[in-house]
Simulated scan of single mutants.
Amino acid sequence: MKLIADHGVGGTSLQMIADAVGVTKAAVYHQFKTKEQIVIALTERELGGLEEALEAAEAEDHPPRARELLLDRVIDLTVERRGVASTLQFDPVVVRLLGEQEPFLQFIQRLYRVLVGDAGDDSRVLAAMMSGAIANGVVHPLVGDIDDETLRCQLRRITRRLIEAADIGVTARTEFC
């Protein structure tokens, strides 16, 4: 994942992966026929860190509490894995591959159903904005020197304000477009 974060999917070769892992290119090819399969496997591993939190949030009877539980875990994982967050969100090959994977799409729908509610256009745009804001908020050069705990606190506070503002807008049914 570090190679892909550093070089992008397009700039990372199977030979580079083999060298980093300490095996032959043939050994990598034996496990994964394409670089895309490696990307999907790495993504599944990374997102696996959210599965338990998502299940707990889905089992929660109180939607605001479910949102808090899941949002805290999303932010914690994103801060812990700063470089990975950027790669998963912004590498065009990763974005395309994940957009073609039905299990990933279902996982993301479940995740954002807990975080922002229904699947209407406003909620989907809010989900996309939150996702990008959190991912960009951990890798942007302006925050590179902020320690993890401070960054977590700031992301939690600002993301909650974004959600509250969206909730107020939905309640008021204000149309700006």
Rank of each mutant, 00 (worst) to 15 (best):
I17M: 14
I17C: 08
I17W: 03
I17Q: 06
A18T: 11
A18N: 07
D19R: 14
D19M: 02
D19V: 14
D19N: 14
A20F: 03
A20W: 05
V21L: 13
V21Q: 15
V21A: 12
V21I: 15
V21Y: 10
V23D: 11
V23Q: 07
T24V: 15
T24P: 14
T24S: 15
T24A: 14
K25Q: 14
K25L: 08
K25H: 04
K25V: 13
K25M: 09
A26E: 12
A26P: 03
A26G: 15
A27N: 09
A27P: 08
V28Y: 04
V28K: 09
Y29G: 10
Y29A: 15
H30E: 14
H30M: 13
Q31W: 08
Q31Y: 12
Q31I: 02
F32T: 09
F32A: 04
F32C: 04
F32D: 07
K33C: 03
T34S: 13
K35F: 05
E36V: 05
E36P: 01
Q37D: 15
I38H: 01
V39L: 07
V39W: 02
I40V: 15
I40W: 04
A41I: 06
A41S: 12
A41K: 03
L42H: 03
L42I: 05
L42A: 12
L42N: 10
T43N: 12
T43S: 15
T43I: 06
E44C: 02
E44A: 10
E44N: 13
E46G: 00
E46T: 10
L47Y: 14
L47K: 08
G48P: 03
G48A: 05
G49W: 02
G49T: 07
G49M: 06
L50M: 11
L50Q: 08
L50C: 06
E51V: 15
E51L: 12
E52H: 13
E52M: 11
L54V: 11
L54W: 06
E55M: 13
E55H: 09
A56F: 02
A57I: 11
A57E: 09
E58S: 08
E58F: 03
A59Q: 14
E60M: 10
E60P: 07
E60I: 12
E60V: 11
D61H: 07
D61S: 14
D61R: 12
H62A: 12
H62K: 10
P63Q: 11
P63N: 07
P63C: 08
P63G: 09
P64L: 11
P64H: 08
P64C: 11
P64G: 11
R65K: 14
R65G: 03
A66T: 04
A66K: 03
R67A: 09
R67V: 10
R67L: 09
R67F: 04
E68F: 01
E68R: 13
L69Q: 13
L69P: 01
L70P: 05
L70C: 03
L71T: 01
L71S: 00
L71Y: 02
L71I: 05
L71Q: 04
D72T: 06
D72L: 01
D72N: 04
D72Q: 06
D72R: 14
R73T: 02
V74R: 01
V74I: 09
I75T: 01
D76S: 00
D76C: 00
T78H: 00
V79P: 00
E80I: 00
E80S: 00
